[in-house]
């Protein structure tokens, strides 16, 4: 839930999603859900030569399970806030 919240705060920011099949897609994060499925707008594929079929694609939905990494805009991530929230969530799960 915590990571879901983080992604929600990053909507309308530019991110780069790297998939498990090595395809990297940069775009504007339009929405995310609890499975960390991701909708991207204005997308650009990093290595278009290797993925020419992607050139015409302007936006996409990415199933969360195929994501390896997401590169985030660090200027929009409050690391102190993240650590505090992570500790809070960890403690609440121990007491469950």
């Amino acid at each position: 839930m915590l990571i879901f919240s983080v992604f929600k705060t990053l909507t309308d920011q530019q991110v780069t999603v790297e998939l498990k099949n090595d395809l990297s897609i940069t775009g504007i994060l339009k929405s995310v859900d609890q499975f960390l499925n991701i909708r991207l707008d204005n997308i650009k594929v990093l290595d278009e030569g290797r993925h020419p079929h992607m050139m015409a694609v302007k936006n996409c939905f990415i199933r969360g399970s195929v994501v390896r990494y997401v590169q985030l805009p660090s200027e929009h991530v409050d690391t102190q806030l993240l650590e505090d929230a992570t500790r809070r969530e960890a403690l609440s799960q121990v007491k469950r």
Binding site: I3, V6, S74, V77, T79, L82, A85, T86, Q93
Partner: peptide, 22 residues
């Protein structure tokens, strides 16, 4: 998995071991 390693400063994780690193 996939013969990859990363090092980074850990800022967040959850029960799935999703991580946020800088």
């Amino acid at each position: 998995r996939g013969d990859r390693e990363v090092t980074g400063i850990l800022h967040a994780y959850d029960g799935h071991m999703n991580l946020i690193l800088s």
